[in-house]
Design a binder for these strands. Structure first.
Lengths: 271, 271
DNA sequence: CGGGCAATTGAAATACATCAAGGCGTGTGG
DNA sequence: CCACACGCCTTGATGTATTTCAATTGCCCG
């Protein structure tokens, strides 16, 4: 059920990229040494990785069809790990479809989700340099992703100053989000944190879609929201209930609808 | 008092770098277009910026004396801003002496300190690309710092792949610390957060000193600790009191002593 | 000497966690 | 196809960590 619930967005991009793919319980390369451009058409133009890897490489449309970076495509079911916190990998994965999360865990089980990964997101940008980021990356829905060889990718990016600049911008955005997260966790109260998370995610989904709708695919469990906001699942439930009773949002069937964006924004910016 | 209390470490480096400098209330260039190497001798070998800007530039000791990056030296008193959150600056500052802090503020006054800056720290690495980081950087003690022209520095760093690699490593460390901060704020309790902050700072100070001592310069007010840990000054006071009564630390006269590192570590790693 | 910032302390308030029970949907094995 | 277990969500009662409020002290600085 989770797999099919990756919904319109993810399904669209996945289909665009590789056609019908049956879910594979074991992680296994599907297409070896595929050129990036092969999988990049309309949907990818919305994807951050597209700017970095495809669109940024050549100005001419014809040239755009070939790219010298090999990659392999993988599919994993929900709840499986994409990146082990201690695993040294020579690959840099980029999400093609589905939702994933990047988190840090404490030995006693407590954990903090640093970011949610949607199609086009690079799994741990920093891993270009430092192979082990200490992050656990786990699939939330079924996820397809593309693994690039670190060395090749690095050589390509470091060789071109325009790509380097773009890469730096991505890094800055990641750092900036991490800082904002710290501000949220340290200085905002539960309802603010949750409202902001919802708004951020709605933005993030909207950026990947051609049309802007109130309702969007929302595969997160309340435990995910709790781990992202530093709260307890129980408390998340209570506050989501309040937000729904107040008519700001509606959650149902792995879908979220923002009914009153203005009011929700007011909660997010309390004071 | 704050100014003079920057203490042994900061005083040492400041003196090493520029000799005796009288505090100047208004921010004002002291040395225009000074070569970096002029100010970099023994003390700088401990400085992260030294590796990035000085030591990394040439292997031969003689060549090391000249460096093609111009900078200006500035001195500001405690509590003054080094970087305005909205200010667009064409300079990248690096701390030479004293303590500063980098924080994000909310319109209602709540704020979160992202990092404390000690001698050698680059003020907002990301500002190499994105001029406005949204961070407020404020002097805690009297601070001297060096302003490098962004364009020159960027050209230098981007041109040399070894320096670039070093820069990326710095960037990764910053991101990693930001993620750890999020974990601390989201998932650890007050005593853990404070114990960890103290240990981190003691590490940071130790890395800048030739000798490792239990006692080190500690110019922070409890308000700073509160804003760094997402707590209230009152609560910080209570917990610091407990830690002192438990014989783990001792605070007095802008100085902190770790009396029982093992026990403090246990509090920091609760469970 | 007086004013203001910093720290301490205690009492009260509150935000959030923990504990516990029940319902609902979903996958599973008989 | 049903019974059942299990994960997920909800809700209420209770506990606790942290905040807020307030009063007091010491200290530095003007």
């Amino acid at each position: 059920m989770l797999g099919s619930s990756t919904g319109a967005l993810a399904g669209h991009m996945a289909d665009t990229m590789i056609g019908s793919t049956t879910a594979q319980p074991t992680e296994e390369p599907k297409v070896a040494a595929t050129m990036c451009a092969v999988s990049c058409d309309t949907a990818c133009s919305l994807c951050p990785a597209y700017n970095l890897l495809c669109g940024g490489l050549s100005k001419s449309a014809s040239e755009q069809q070939s790219l010298p970076v090999a990659s392999t495509l993988h599919t994993i079911p929900a709840r499986r790990l994409i990146l082990h916190p201690k695993e040294w990998s020579e690959f840099v994965p980029i999400v093609c479809s589905g939702w994933a999360m990047s988190s840090i865990a404490l030995p006693d089980g407590r954990r903090q989700i640093i970011s949610f990964l949607l199609p086009g997101d690079v799994v741990s940008i920093g891993s270009l340099i430092a192979p082990l980021s200490g992050h656990t990356v786990e699939a939330i829905t079924e996820v397809t992703y593309r693994k690039f060889k670190r060395d090749e990718l690095k050589e390509l990016l470091f060789g071109r100053s325009d790509l380097l600049e773009r890469l730096f911008k991505l890094w800055n955005e990641a750092k900036s989000r991490a800082d904002q997260l710290a501000l949220d966790l340290g200085r905002r109260r539960a309802d603010e944190r949750i409202a902001r998370l919802i708004l951020r995610l709605s933005e993030k989904v909207a950026r990947r879609s051609t049309v802007r709708t109130q309702t969007f695919d929302f595969p997160l469990r309340q435990r995910h929201i709790a781990d992202a906001t530093g709260l307890t699942p129980v408390h998340v439930s209570k506050i989501l209930g309040e937000l729904q009773r107040a008519g700001m949002i509606e959650i149902g069937g792995r879908t979220l609808t923002i009914l009153n964006a203005a009011e929700l924004q007011r909660v997010a910016d309390w004071r």
